[in-house]
């Protein structure tokens, strides 16, 4: 089994995993970080979204071995101590989550959007979230939350 060395939420980690192990399996099963979810088997739902070297990636579309040496951030690595990350706080403020299952992927994806586009329009947010499915919220409040969170991340607050 290959040994894999990577940084996870700022900590150096080494894991043993088979060649066929998906990054999401490594995160959930080997690293025990169950905040990253699996909602499909066709790379469509985005519940598994994490950051790899700062960019959002569906962790079910990547083999764990491809992440050798990479810096991975999962939903668990976003908040600072007790303080929610501005995007997390915006989701709470605007009721951007119900069952919470899509939420980690939504938040990770939204953070990447906000890094690229500090003031996304409603249409830009809806377009960006193309790869993230939510069955609960109808997206209305997610869109609100992402726009507010992007503003807060970029010094709006």
């Amino acid at each position: 089994m290959p040994k894999l060395t990577l940084s996870v939420n700022g900590q150096p980690r080494t894991i043993d995993c088979a060649n066929a192990t998906l990054l999401v399996e490594a995160i959930r099963e080997h690293l025990g970080l169950t905040g990253t979810h699996v909602g499909c088997d066709s790379s469509q739902c985005g519940a598994c979204t994490v950051h790899v070297d700062g960019r959002s990636v569906k962790s079910c579309t990547m083999l764990a071995v491809e992440a050798e040496g990479a810096a991975i951030t999962t939903i668990e690595g976003l908040a600072t101590g007790n303080d929610l990350h501005p995007m997390q706080a915006a989701f709470k403020e605007h009721h951007g989550l119900q069952c919470g299952f899509c939420t980690p992927g939504m938040v990770m994806s939204a953070c990447d959007l906000a890094a690229r586009n500090p003031a996304p329009s409603e249409g830009e947010v809806r377009h960006w979230l193309e790869g993230n499915l939510c069955r609960c919220t109808g997206y209305h409040n997610i869109v609100k939350a992402v726009r507010a969170g992007a503003g807060d991340m970029n010094g709006g607050k």
Binding site: R28, L33, T34, G35, T36, H37, V38, T74, I75, E76, L78, A79, L84, Q88, F91, K92, E93, H95, L97, G100, F101, T103, P104, V107
Partner: peptide, 19 residues
């Protein structure tokens, strides 16, 4: 009122059956 349950979901500490 803002939801009490949100925090655990937002920080990845929800506990679903597969977890």
């Amino acid at each position: 009122v803002k939801r009490k349950e949100d925090r655990r979901f937002l920080v990845g500490r929800g506990q679903y059956t597969d977890d």
